[in-house]
Amino acid sequence: MSTLLEVNGISVTFDGFRAINNLSFNIGPAEMRAIIGPNGAGKTTFMDIVTGKTRPDTGKVLWGELSRNLVGMNEARIAQEGIGRKFQKPTVFEDQTVEENLLMAVKNKRGAFSVLFWKPSDADMNRVAELAAEIGLANELMRKSGELSHGQKQWLEIGMLLAQEPRLLLVDEPAAGMTPEEREKTTDILVEAAKTRAVVVVEHDMEFVRRLNCKVTVLHEGSVLAEGSLDHVTSNQQVIDVYLGR
């Protein structure tokens, strides 16, 4: 199996606390993966490292067919490489309309000058309409995103993520604070997305993970404890000890 992202022996220490300890991790080009683990297992730090927010003390993060090392690139550069990230808390630009939010995310040149002289083409507008339909916000395009409900904001953020057309999606607890219907819809969107790209979901909610129906990686104290199907890992005694058994 070819790999899209290969995380190789990374470690990072905060003030003597070893948040990630010699972690290695691979994911293919069109794959859904769930990451679970107790608090402090290093899930968010792992995402921070991949997206360039935190620089690891040692190790490599190799990306794509050319196996380029992402360590040392800045966040914007990594995002342009095709890695999209959704935060735990929905972060959309509340002061701007849904359309503006999506237009900002639609894949286009990101340089200051090309953006300054950029005018939306028909293709861009169609893409926005398409995405809006997909995330169920087609009727809300002209509303300020601050006025949306919590679930709608989550979808808008996922929509923005999709608009970037990333090859790897990192999603941090997408289902938090959602109603059951909203969760179902979120699952659909993610499963659909995983058909064409790699999706990594960090989630606490086992129910949600089960519905994703994918390979699961369990993190503990900064390294991989177990990997496999949900049933496989949940039957692992170590996993039960550190996580499920609590």
């Binding site: 914007a76 995002a79 999209g84 503006e100 995310a105």
Partner: peptide, 23 residues
């Protein structure tokens, strides 16, 4: 235009704009 959108985005949440791929 979109430039205004981006700079207001920077004002409201700089990190988010960065993760959208804007420098």
């Amino acid at each position: 235009g979109k430039f205004g959108s981006v700079i207001r985005g920077i004002r409201d949440n700089e990190a988010r704009v960065r993760f959208l791929g804007y420098s």
